[in-house]
């Protein structure tokens, strides 16, 4: 009964209200995203006040501190400062590895779920999300209890005679990886699942009819088609991992700064260097935007390429 005219008429009811209805979204984006970022941008160019706060004088000191090393006493000729670049690099590397691990486990999981009968798929999705009803902090602390030297996993392996010495995981980079991987796995599974579920498997049958092997079909038919889901999953895992500091602090023993804890220290630490914390946030934001930009451009090229 609902013809095109009918639906246009329905939309028409809201036409005069269109901008007012958008207002809440604009306010939320403006107040909670744009304004804080702008404040940080401005703060990063201001002079630091001792023990927190800013003085309204323009300076590049925060960016200078990030990129240039003038020695402990500031009296040496400037060299490139590797300290903060190193901290960023460690975070990027760790987030990248967590993303790869999530993809390796997440893709087969999503594929499995998407190929179940429709009636049982939802149960699988439900099971994937259940652990995430518990707070991230509690899950991370529980993981710590599980993997420590005299935790249940080591106790069991020892009593079963499978190992002679406890496996030392806690306070190592491996434990941090485990924490990140575990924290963000559903962010990888769910978008890929959504993509595979929409995938038309008759394409695979067609490929099989044309003598394509299973792996060939996977690489050349399925993966290109569910690519947006994979990319979305990777972004959703990579970006929060980049700023994560719960897993590095609790499972890695907080021995080294991550981007997140470095920035936190600037706002909450003894000296309180707000402009430097703001500058580090801006640099992090720039890195993330560059990654997203290249992804968007890549996609645009691919789409236009596919059109030919």
């Amino acid at each position: 009964m609902a013809g095109p005219g009918n639906s246009r008429g329905f939309q028409g009811v809201f036409t005069p209200l269109r901008y007012w209805l958008l207002l809440p979204s604009w306010l939320v984006v403006g107040f909670f995203m744009v304004a804080p970022v702008l404040i940080m941008l401005v703060y990063s160019f201001l002079t630091k006040e001792f023990r927190g706060g800013v003085i309204w004088e323009f300076t590049l000191a925060a960016y200078d501190q990030f990129f240039l090393d003038r020695g402990l006493f500031g009296d040496e000729p400037p060299k490139i400062e590797w300290t903060y670049i190193g901290i960023f690099w460690r975070s990027v590397w760790q987030a990248g590895l967590a993303t790869v691990l999530c993809l390796l486990i997440g893709f087969p999981t999503a594929y499995y779920i998407a190929t179940r009968p429709p009636a049982t798929r939802n149960i699988w999705v439900f099971l994937v999300t259940i652990p995430y009803w518990v707070n991230l902090l509690i899950r991370t602390v529980s993981m710590k209890f599980l993997i420590r030297d005299n935790g249940p996993i080591n106790e069991w392996l020892l009593s079963a005679g499978l190992i002679a010495e406890p496996i030392h995981l806690i306070n190592t980079p491996v434990a941090v990886q485990l924490g990140l991987f575990y924290s963000y796995l559903p962010f990888m599974v769910l978008p890929i699942y959504a993509a595979i579920e929409r995938f038309d498997f008759s394409l695979c049958e067609a490929a099989a009819d044309l003598y394509a092997g299973r792996w060939f079909a996977l690489w050349h038919i399925i993966i290109p088609n569910v690519r947006p889901g994979i990319v979305a999953g990777c972004i959703l895992v990579f970006i929060p991992s980049l700023g994560a500091f719960l897993a590095p602090d609790l499972l890695g023993g907080a021995k080294n700064f991550m981007i997140g804890s470095l920035i936190e220290e600037q706002f909450k630490g003894t000296a309180g260097n707000w402009p430097f914390g703001a500058a580090a946030s801006m640099i992090l934001l720039s890195v993330v935007l560059v990654v997203l930009f290249f992804n968007a451009r890549n996609r645009a090229t691919q789409t236009s390429g596919a059109g030919h």
């Binding site: 402990l72 907080a254 700064f257 630490g269 003894t270």
Partner: peptide
């Protein structure tokens, strides 16, 4: 003092980098 505290901050950052 502020000028001294900056040095201790640098040692701390250096320790945890």
């Amino acid at each position: 003092e502020e000028a001294t505290q900056v040095l201790y901050d640098a040692i701390w950052t250096n320790l945890k980098k």
